[in-house]
Simulated scan of single mutants.
Amino acid sequence: MTNLEDLVVHLTEDHKVNPDKTGKTFNLVEEYALLTQLEQAKTMRLNSGGGGGGGAKLPFGVGPVDLQNEIETVIMSTLQPWQYAPIAKLPLPERLKEWFGLVDIGPAENYLPKWVHQIRDLFTTKFHLEATCPECHTATITQEQDGQITHKDALMVTVESQTATCANCGNTWTGVDDLNYLAGKI
């Protein structure tokens, strides 16, 4: 199976993933298809009321809706009308599988990795640490974004993967033991 085929599977089918990124196959857990997760993100509600429940329900955000619209638009616009018509009424996961079989490799290479990354980012909790990296002794980094100079904390924690990374030296601490070690150093 090619990398692009793997991405199609991750987008359209429930599959096994390794949450701790160690490469050990005995740690695999089942992950819902990413398009299923995207659909769930569209309907997720945040309870904005205080205490006792019953608060107003607010939409999760327009990001998931916009992303699904982009996927549907790309599928439609990169196929010829005679290719799209037979698959137009299929559920999105089936439509994406058919699209992958019909479209030239270029659009697949451009869009599949992006969509996987964007859907996973909807469910990723990251935060910066206001601390100095114990390896390179850097607390902040300077970046240019859209012509603007910004300063960010060098250390970033990603909760779901239990990792911390220094944006300056690239050192990574993975797992509870490494994070406890890092906490002791900072």
Rank of each mutant, 00 (worst) to 15 (best):
L182M: 05
D14T: 09
Q143M: 12
T132R: 07
P59E: 06
A85T: 14
T25A: 07
T158A: 02
F100C: 03
C136F: 10
L122M: 11
V8Q: 00
G170H: 15
V159L: 06
I71V: 15
T138A: 07
L4V: 00
C136W: 11
L34Q: 00
S48Y: 15
I119D: 00
G54K: 08
G101H: 07
Q40H: 10
L67P: 03
I87K: 00
V8P: 01
W115N: 02
G106E: 11
W82F: 10
I186Y: 04
P59N: 06
D153C: 09
Y32H: 15
T174H: 12
K126N: 01
I105N: 02
K152V: 04
R45E: 14
L7Q: 04
T22F: 08
T43E: 14
F127Q: 02
T73Q: 06
T125K: 15
D146H: 09
T158H: 00
E39T: 04
D20M: 11
A108I: 06
P81A: 13
T12C: 11
C133S: 07
D121Y: 06
L155I: 11
P113T: 04
T125V: 08
T138D: 05
Q68L: 09
A139C: 12
W82I: 09
N180H: 13
L46I: 15
T165I: 13
Q145K: 15
P93H: 03
D121S: 15
A33M: 09
T138K: 14
F123T: 05
P64G: 06
V62G: 09
T158N: 04
G52A: 13
A85S: 15
P86Y: 14
V9K: 05
S48I: 12
T140I: 04
V74S: 03
C136Y: 10
L112M: 05
N18H: 14
V62C: 09
P107L: 06
M156E: 02
G170A: 10
L28M: 12
G55A: 14
I105G: 01
G184V: 02
K24Q: 12
T2D: 00
V29A: 07
A41C: 08
I119E: 01
T150M: 13
T43V: 13
G184C: 02
L102M: 14
P86K: 13
L38T: 01
N171Y: 07
A167K: 10
K21M: 10
K16C: 14
L35Y: 09
G101S: 06
C169W: 08
D146R: 04
N168F: 05
V29Y: 03
T124H: 12
F26H: 09
D14Q: 10
F60N: 14
L96P: 03
F123R: 10
W99H: 02
G23Y: 01
Q148E: 06
G23T: 02
T78H: 13
